[in-house]
Design a protein around this nucleic acid. Sequence first.
DNA 1: ACAGCCACAGTTGTGCACAACTGTCTAGCT
DNA 2: AGCTAGACAGTTGTGCACAACTGTGGCTGT
Lengths: 213, 213
Amino acid sequence: MSTAAARHQRLHSELRERICLLDYPPGTKLSEEALAAEFGTSRTPLRRVLARLEDEGLVESRHGIGTLVTDVDMALMAQVYDLRLHLAALAGQLDPLPVTPGVRAEIRDFVTRGEALLAAPDPRAFAALNSAYHRFGLSLTGNAPLRETAARLYYLTARIWLTSIPRMNLTSECAIFLGEMRETETALAAGDTAAAALIRRAHISMSVHRMTR
Amino acid sequence: MSTAAARHQRLHSELRERICLLDYPPGTKLSEEALAAEFGTSRTPLRRVLARLEDEGLVESRHGIGTLVTDVDMALMAQVYDLRLHLAALAGQLDPLPVTPGVRAEIRDFVTRGEALLAAPDPRAFAALNSAYHRFGLSLTGNAPLRETAARLYYLTARIWLTSIPRMNLTSECAIFLGEMRETETALAAGDTAAAALIRRAHISMSVHRMTR
DNA sequence: ACAGCCACAGTTGTGCACAACTGTCTAGCT
DNA sequence: AGCTAGACAGTTGTGCACAACTGTGGCTGT
């Protein structure tokens, strides 16, 4: 049963990932016709996906020109980061979910994947793991609007890291990331989701500090 | 010069207002064809507006059924209010804008309109003034993502007050509202936007408390 | 040589016809 | 009478053709 809504979600996630992983760098012209052909539909359903991406600030459609991937406005992104910091901390205060054995298994798995990443550093793999880890952090709160809002803002800033990493030390970043996950594992082992959220907030803050230096 | 984007904004605002003022109560079936005829377009541009409203959680389109105004889920709304409380306080911390003479004139005007409302209490006029006052409160921060996020969440909960007012004391609510605006005027006269934001947060909290009693 | 204009290719936006889907009502059978 | 199947009206979803718009490149007149 492949409903229209399901396909919409699929295409939206796919295009969003391509944009955030810089498969479509800022300024790329997305052809409605080409994408429609690739996904085996007509322009109509695809246009709805692009409209949503435009509402989310990831693309911009101009009549007669094309649909362009937005460029990363650092002044705006600084504001988004400011907001994300507070939302990250809120994830531990608003409706914190109990730490189940399943959650503990998840964070253990993340630590394992982080160790693998540190053994073989790779920007794209880092970005992918970071994205998954972000979703995991959000899963610790039962507040649905907070989850959606934080996710929306995350995808706005997701591209910055990949553009900054050439000027940074990749191995060092992987080690720091692994350290954050280990700290979080400790916090969650004690059932302290609020502490886990504060760890996340601290690391987002420090990450911004390293990127903008 | 009436571009497509401008019309999209116009129709979006118009329909959102009709939903939030309960001109379209929850469960109302919005006919794409009828609305398209009313606004003098075809279904195509109108469908994009409805799609955006659906992404914002105000309507829900079902194939073969219709596009229905969502009902107000109190469990979800409680979560939205939790989040809104913190965002209201953040408006005074993140990029607080200087209190210009223009701002002082605005809040003075709001107090005047509040006095007029108290003299002739009316639910719809209250809701309209509250909406305008909410936008004013957001204008005190320079953080654009915070403004957009708070606005989005506001419109999600805007309908609750109108549905609760029959069980409340309208005149009392008007008096409390006027009191909040006067307090805010004092805070802004002192140039203290952070205090203004905290006043707003406190009143949102107390308002929720009165509604859910 | 240069400036201005026009035709054109390429893109998004719009309108319309039809497909897909859902709930209801009715006719017919048991 | 009750039940089932099928036609039907009404709605959203899709595909396609065309309108509207933009930038470019060449052509022409001076």
